[in-house]
Amino acid sequence: MVIEQETINMNHNNSNFTCTVRPTALSRWSINTSIGILIATFSFNVTAETTTHYYDGNTQHAIKLQPNLVAEFASNASAQARSTENANTKRPFVTIRKNVPLASRAAGSATSQSPVFREGDSPAGRLMALPGGVIVNFKPDWTDDQIQLWAKTHSYVIKQKLNILGNWYVIDTPPGLISLQTANDIHETGEVLSASPNWWKQTVTR
């Protein structure tokens, strides 16, 4: 991770952003992206230290938006994508920039940026960002065919089955808030055991 301090004061006049999560059956990020439908169940102001949440298992975790930080991902797709360009240029996967507005304010836009959150409500909370993707734990009696059908029904694209016990899959989404929205949306339907964003989390060597 690289943290840079920008010296240019950025204009935040247009940074207010509201996005929504539709009921699961309709919450296709591609649709939200293209037409920016706002159905007010999820409201977000990226200029304030807004507290929101995500789910991990059955636990709801509080997170706090860091309005002065933006995460830029080296790949222009999700973390699941294969980016030889990145591999060749040896760019860091994520760069946290200070005082830079999100390049795109539209939910679900094909951007390599994400807002940055801190875990919990401490000012020192672990930095987290959204490189794209949702990790879904399906009920154990669901077959792979059922899961594929569920994904197709909801216009989700399954990128990967995790090599762990249970029915854990990664669903593709673009980077950014849409990943969080989609995860919360899926989780709150109760159709699955859990759904969490595929977080990038600040991690250090010891």
């Binding site: 991990d56 672990r126 249970g166 991690t203 250090v204 010891r206």
Partner: peptide, 19 residues
């Protein structure tokens, strides 16, 4: 490796990682 040290924070692990 792990979550950042020296900050005194409680850092839960993710359920997928636990699994």
């Amino acid at each position: 490796y792990g979550a950042a040290d020296n900050n005194g924070l409680l850092e839960p692990s993710a359920e997928a990682w636990q699994q």
